[in-house]
């Protein structure tokens, strides 16, 4: 397959947009970790709800960092491929472009893993308020109806 000088440029917009999405996720998570940590400190003890959430969130932050790293590396290889194609080294350009695509795919796999565990922390938080207290209140209400 012949490779144009402009072909690697197709990936540019994708990776920049993906990085934007990743960064937003990262910032949101960092904020959440800070607030949760403050809350845990206020309570003075290791809360049974907060510490598993923190562990899950930390894992996700680490995954996002690796995703960003791989995406930037992919972008680097694409630009490098353009550079090589500019000097008519088409075989080297193709190989470098293929490496770039491979790195992008790795980043996407990590992203899929991250999305898969994304509701975990919230589930822990909600398991307390949805399953814990309101269920007891339902019983109270039934008693009220009976009486």
């Amino acid at each position: 397959m012949e490779l144009n000088l402009t072909t690697p440029a197709l990936i540019f917009s994708t990776i920049s947009l993906l990085l934007l999405a990743y960064t937003n996720r990262f910032l949101g998570l960092a904020d959440l970790i800070r607030t949760l940590h403050d809350k845990a400190k206020e309570k003075g003890e290791k809360d049974s709800i907060i510490s598993p959430q923190l562990a899950s969130l930390k894992k996700r932050v680490k995954l996002i960092r690796n995703m960003q790293f791989l995406a930037i590396l992919a972008l680097f290889f694409c630009v490098f491929s353009m550079f090589l194609l500019f000097f008519n080294k088409s075989t080297a350009g193709e190989v470098v472009f293929a490496i770039g695509l491979g790195l992008l795919m790795l980043s996407l796999i990590l992203s899929a893993i991250e999305i898969n565990i994304s509701v975990h922390a919230l589930n822990i938080q909600l398991s307390e308020s949805v399953d814990g207290e309101p269920l007891i209140d339902d019983n109270i209400k039934e008693k009220e109806v009976v009486s």
């Binding site: 397959m1 992008l104 795919m105 796999i109 992203s111 999305i115």
Partner: peptide
């Protein structure tokens, strides 16, 4: 969550498709 998963998988396959077409 599922929407994002499907979107990422789709992106993965289109990258893979480019990879195959390249060779």
């Amino acid at each position: 969550r599922y929407l994002q998963l499907f979107a990422v998988v789709s992106l993965f396959f289109s990258t893979l498709s480019m990879f195959f077409l390249l060779f």
